Amino acid sequence: MKLPLLAAAALAGPLAVAMASPVLAQDVTGLWQTQTNGGQVEIARCGNSLCGKLVNSDHIRADPGVKDAKNKDTALRDRPLKNMQMLYDFTGGPTKWTGGKVYNAADGGTYSGTITLTSANSLKLKGCIVAPFCKTETWTRIK
């Protein structure tokens, strides 16, 4: 009777690890393709939170020196869009981060945000002026 219990215990360990592995394997950091304007955003850890910078877009490909011309803060309108931080202060995990801010260069606005990792290669980014006035995009991981 002890042998089957030991065998069951031995199998439970790897099985438990295998069941947990998909969650552990899903890391939100990396390069992501946005849903609009051919954007590519690199999400990284910034201290205890997540942040993201715009590394490429249709506008950047057309003009690598394109500026943040629509920023509501006129002092920031001369900064380049390339490598500009557009996601910041997201906390939580391992599959949902909240409390962050999303900067939208298309209108110069900053919105409250949520990032939800829906699979290893897909996430949903939600930005809200004030709930329920929100927009959600699905981003795909670039391998």
Rank of each mutant, 00 (worst) to 15 (best):
A106Y: 06
K124M: 05
T138A: 10
L3V: 13
V66R: 04
T136R: 07
P64T: 07
F90D: 00
C128N: 00
N71P: 01
K96H: 02
S57A: 13
D27K: 14
H59N: 10
L76K: 15
R61G: 02
L87C: 01
N37S: 14
A9L: 15
V130Y: 11
L5I: 14
D68Q: 07
P80R: 01
Q33K: 12
A10M: 08
A18H: 09
G52E: 02
L87S: 05
K143Q: 14
M84N: 12
G108M: 04
C51Y: 04
Y88C: 08
M19D: 11
P22Q: 09
G47H: 03
M1Y: 12
L76C: 06
A105K: 01
Q40C: 08
L5Q: 11
S122H: 13
L50R: 04
L31S: 09
L11Q: 07
K124R: 13
P22G: 05
L15V: 15
R45M: 08
G65C: 00
A62C: 02
Q33L: 10
L11N: 10
L87H: 00
L5K: 09
G38D: 04
L5W: 12
Q85D: 14
L117D: 03
K126C: 04
G127D: 04
A120N: 07
V23Y: 15
S21D: 10
V28C: 00
F133K: 10
P22Y: 07
G109S: 14
K135Y: 01
R77E: 01
K2I: 13
L5Y: 15
G13N: 07
W32R: 02
K143W: 09
D27A: 03
M84T: 08
T74P: 14
C128R: 06
V41R: 04
P132F: 01
M1K: 13
T29F: 04
A20D: 09
F133C: 09
T98Y: 00
L81R: 03
K126D: 03
K70V: 05
T91F: 07
L15D: 05
G30I: 01
P132V: 04
P4S: 05
I129T: 10
Y111N: 07
A20W: 14
G13Q: 08
T114L: 14
C46H: 01
A75M: 07
R77I: 03
P132Q: 02
G39C: 05
F90Q: 00
P4V: 03
L117I: 02
K135E: 11
L81M: 03
D78E: 14
P80N: 07
T36H: 10
K67N: 03
A120K: 11
Q26G: 02
E137L: 10
R77L: 01
T118N: 08
T36A: 12
A10E: 06
E42D: 09
T34W: 10
A69V: 13
